[in-house]
């Protein structure tokens, strides 16, 4: 057991998988010599050399195309798209090529690759460097979508993603890079498509993802002091989605609250609410409720950004009010 930052967990995860399989290669902008703009890949170039850790030009299409072509010919590439916002300039490769080619070719090719990216807000970077875009990926058939909330999950889910035979979009949250957690020693390999119950609850179930998870946990602690026993589930993986764990918990508590950083429309929580409504409606004691960023681009000023993204206080008051009504 050791204290590790989320940032250092990324480097440890990549190291673990590159040591595990010589076909794992890594490419992206500033990932080698510079150790990544978020310093999440420090030391990898020195350890694995320039054949396996490749700095690229600012060419997001070429980065993802190279990863795709390498994956279909026997390698297991890890590609970095520095900020998730940049997916907008290479979305053809993600949504049209990587996601669809297994299906279109009747399974002739598969794509064991991972695209990691810095996702999410809270760092005052403004509207083009702060978006949570995991729901873009979730909307495309053929992509697996993962977003860890803590250092241990970074390693375990990343390993599962690299070893998975399908393309995985791995959303690291920029606002979590400096957060710390206890991480077990040795190899860690987790399972995609498994949500984690972080706190059981009797009155309500809060479902959260990535940076919203620690906020949901803190909110649940405050709610407990006020007499509301709210459980917390970390979704961890949007595709595949562990609906069984969520349906079980929500059926037991009768109330669902999602906490989403994405702008309101078509966020992952909307899909979850729809599943819950269809499949455990009769267990509900009240309407499912979504706590999200409003449907606006993220502003830059700290005062404004803090108002936009769900805060611990907003989670607490929203749930408290809903439970009292």
């Amino acid at each position: 057991m050791a204290q590790l930052t989320y940032r250092d967990a990324v480097a440890r995860a990549i190291t673990q998988e590159m040591e595990h399989d010589p076909n794992v290669v890594f490419l992206g902008e500033d990932v080698g010599g510079a150790g990544g703009v978020f310093k999440a890949t420090v030391g990898l170039l020195e350890r694995f050399g320039p054949e396996r850790v490749r700095d690229t030009p600012i060419s997001e299409q070429a980065i993802l195309g190279a990863a795709m072509g390498a994956a279909m010919t026997g390698l297991r590439p890890i590609a970095e798209i520095m900020f998730a916002d940049f997916f907008a300039v290479c979305w053809d490769l993600v949504a049209n090529q990587i996601a669809k080619s297994s299906y279109m070719t009747a399974g002739q090719v598969s794509f064991p690759l991972v695209i990691r990216s810095g996702n999410g807000g809270g760092l005052r970077f403004g509207a083009q460097h702060s978006q949570s875009v995991e729901n873009w990926a979730m909307a495309v058939p053929g992509l697996k979508v993962v977003a860890p909330s803590n250092p241990t999950d970074v390693i375990g889910l990343f390993a599962a993603a690299v070893r998975d035979p399908d393309p995985v979009m791995f959303f690291e949250h920029k606002g979590l890079y400096s957060s710390k957690g206890e991480v077990p020693d040795g190899e860690i390999v987790d399972t995609l498509g498994s949500a984690k119950v972080l706190r059981p609850g009797g009155d309500a179930t809060i479902v959260a993802l990535a940076a919203m998870v620690p906020r949901a946990v803190a909110a649940a602690a405050t709610l407990a002091e006020r007499g509301i026993d709210a459980g917390v589930i970390d979704v961890r993986s949007l595709v595949p989605l562990d609906t069984q764990t969520i349906l079980r918990e929500v059926s037991a508590t009768g109330r669902l609250f999602t906490v989403e950083e994405n702008p309101r429309l078509c966020g992952w929580g909307a899909e979850l609410v729809s599943i819950v409504a269809e499949e455990c409606f009769n267990y509900l004691d009240g309407p499912p409720l979504r706590i999200t960023t409003p449907h606006i681009p993220l502003p830059s000023a700290d005062a404004l950004e803090d108002m936009a993204i769900p805060s611990i206080e907003r989670i607490v008051t929203t749930i408290e009010r809903a439970m009292q009504s």
Binding site: L64, G65, M68, M72, T73, L75
Partner: peptide, 12 residues
Amino acid sequence: AHLTIALGAAWS
């Protein structure tokens, strides 16, 4: 798109 994908096969 496929010019970029050919890069990857060549890299491999």
